[in-house]
């Protein structure tokens, strides 16, 4: 029993079980969701949340925290619904510049030894401001191609699930299997030893931030693909959702201990929690509160399971 699951596997196993239990509860409450269309509706908004959660996870892997995630995804969504739709080249340029800004933030935070929380807090104003300038009132239109991708109906499983699995696998390959992934988790774990091993920490941090920006932009693009329009506040709740998703998925704030697969599962769990509550017919007043309660419950379960695992290890 002891050797059956490694610590890394457990990190993913517990979130996966929470998701399975929640899904089971939803199926029990509303059997009609146990279908292609039902699942599609349940996980409809999961893809952008999963991408934003992965972006947050990358930042958390180097011991930072991005409080501008929601504002940045909203900004990316606004660019997608305007420039990327009407002038694709200009749109791509703007998004590329945004990635460069993120890389620059990584450099400034590293060189000046600044708290990432505060810098990203300031940046959240900047991104929101830019988003308001681009789209003063809700509107815009989704580019045809992204609309087509997001509404494609693959056989067997709905798009949201296929895409989530695909995203999880790609992120897993980048973060857990590539050399950049190893070094960036190393920076979170022990920055000095990575430095002494001859790596440039500032470069790794810049690349991590740039990579996070790419994931966040994809979140914005996919969100517009689903909603077909954007507004400057479209993704503001993603800041807190993405942090919660990473934690639910077994990630930790320090030490470079993150799990891309877990993060995607965490994002799916959060998406499902909202549907679950509406099936429970909880009064709308308490919907948000119940979401908080679910978060607490899942973390409590994780604590119990982790404790049991630790006991078995010791035995």
């Amino acid at each position: 029993m002891r050797r059956l699951v490694s610590a890394d596997a457990l990190r993913v196993l517990v979130p996966a079980m929470s998701l399975a239990v929640l899904l089971g509860a939803v199926f029990y409450l509303q059997p009609r969701t146990m279908s292609y269309t039902g699942l599609n509706l349940l996980f409809n908004l999961a893809v952008p949340i999963a991408l934003a959660t992965l972006a947050q996870m990358l930042i958390m892997a180097v011991n930072d925290l991005d409080l501008s995630m929601g504002a940045f995804v909203s900004f990316a969504a606004c660019v997608t619904a305007t420039f990327l739709q009407s002038a694709p080249l200009l749109g791509l340029l703007i998004l590329a510049a945004a990635v460069a800004v993120y890389a620059g933030l990584g450099v400034i935070i590293h060189l000046r030894n600044l708290p990432a929380i505060v810098v990203t807090l300031g940046m959240s104003f900047v991104w929101s401001g830019l988003a308001v300038l681009i789209l003063p009132s809700p509107g815009g239109a989704a580019p045809e191609w992204i609309r087509a991708i997001m509404t494609v109906r693959p056989p067997f499983a709905p798009m949201a699930i296929v895409a989530s699995v695909l995203i999880a696998v790609i992120a897993h390959l980048i973060v857990m299997r590539s050399s950049l992934g190893v070094v960036l988790r190393g920076v979170g774990g022990n920055r000095r030893s990575v430095e002494r091993a001859g790596w440039s920490v500032v470069r790794v941090r810049a690349m991590t931030y740039a990579l996070a920006a790419v994931f966040a932009i994809l979140a914005g693009i996919s969100l517009v693909g689903l909603t077909t329009a954007a507004d400057a506040n479209i993704a503001m709740r993603y800041t807190l959702l993405s942090i919660a998703g990473v934690i639910l998925g077994g990630g930790e704030f320090v030490g470079g201990r993150v799990s891309p697969i877990g993060a995607v599962i965490g994002a799916l769990t959060l998406t499902l929690a909202a549907s679950f509550l509406s099936f429970l017919r909880i009064s709308p007043d308490w919907q948000i509160g119940a979401q908080g309660a679910i978060l607490i419950l899942v973390l409590a379960i994780r604590l119990v399971l982790n404790r049991r695992e630790n006991k078995e290890k010791r035995a």
Partner: peptide, 19 residues
């Protein structure tokens, strides 16, 4: 929009100089 951008840049500016 411009006001928010300025607020953000000023916050970052203060942190970069003072921090």
């Amino acid at each position: 929009g411009f006001r928010m951008i300025m607020t953000g840049l000023i916050i970052i500016g203060v942190i970069v100089t003072a921090g």
